[in-house]
Design a protein around this nucleic acid. Sequence first.
DNA 1: AAAATAAACGCAGTATACTGACCATATCGG
DNA 2: CCGATATGGTCAGTATACTGCGTTTATTTT
Lengths: 171, 171
Amino acid sequence: MAKHRSETTRASLIASRENGDRLPLWSRPGYLIRRLHQIHHALFLDECRTFRITPVQYGLLTVLSTRPGIDQVTLAAELGIDRTNVADVLARLAARGLVRRASAERDKRVKLAFLTVEGARLTGKMYEAMHRSQERLIAPLSPAERRKFMAMLTRLVEASNQHGRALLRPS
Amino acid sequence: MAKHRSETTRASLIASRENGDRLPLWSRPGYLIRRLHQIHHALFLDECRTFRITPVQYGLLTVLSTRPGIDQVTLAAELGIDRTNVADVLARLAARGLVRRASAERDKRVKLAFLTVEGARLTGKMYEAMHRSQERLIAPLSPAERRKFMAMLTRLVEASNQHGRALLRPS
DNA sequence: AAAATAAACGCAGTATACTGACCATATCGG
DNA sequence: CCGATATGGTCAGTATACTGCGTTTATTTT
């Protein structure tokens, strides 16, 4: 007990000496962005609950709807996520019969992905709900602010896009 | 084969009919925010590689440095993450000897968390690296834009803070 | 005081999102 | 043509971030 107390006291002293009056958590852009990301995830699930589809799954479905037969690496670049993650998400969607996977004939390494009829139908039916979740996210800003916010987000993403294995490369 | 081709054709038709010329992925705020979150994660790991600490772990450590002996529910609210997630992160930090956990005496349900001396020292040493990762994230914006961006982020988070189990409640 | 409710924690399960290692197939230089 | 290199995919492992359920302990209501 006494030993614990003294260790805690020492830790607090070190913390206050080395760490005091520094940038608090919620003044750090990274933490606000992480939290806003979570909030959007929650809003999306709230609107799309009945479909049992997550934001990333929906993103993948919409990419497939405009680019049927895309390979996994290109798909990953379109979505801005890692190729191993794409394989995970594809497997779950395929298990639900929303996506079909096939090997390419020209290049035996490549696996192609397609929407099934049911996948395409679901994607279409979800659009309104997805759109509402996006609107709710930025609703607290005025229309002019929304434009500025989106422009800044775009600039930040484009400027730092090379970081991580999941670099974004929209067509 | 012919069956597959015709199914794909039907799916594409449904997709283009129900989904055509709609809001593209990267004009949706949620997707830009998700990607910017990933970018910050990558920048943070890049700067803090030698410490082997993630953004959330560092956030938890800094909260503990200002509020030693905090319980897990309050900790979750300070961080804006779920309490089960807090327990996971605490377990990993405790396994590395950076954090100590103890039961409260007054209320036997509650578990308290403290920095160890080593945890406090590490947190202090990491500050500069963490700060660089935050600066790099918003470097593409001018100082005036950064202020506006941070103000808008803060408003958005505060406005939608009630969503999800991980509501944020900074002290 | 007993019963009902609430709070704190834990566990199992699921999804995202990576790293590092490995294998199969293509491509390219000599 | 053949060895080196590059590319696409998979697998194992780790971390974040939840939901839903159950257990223990406090508090509140009757």
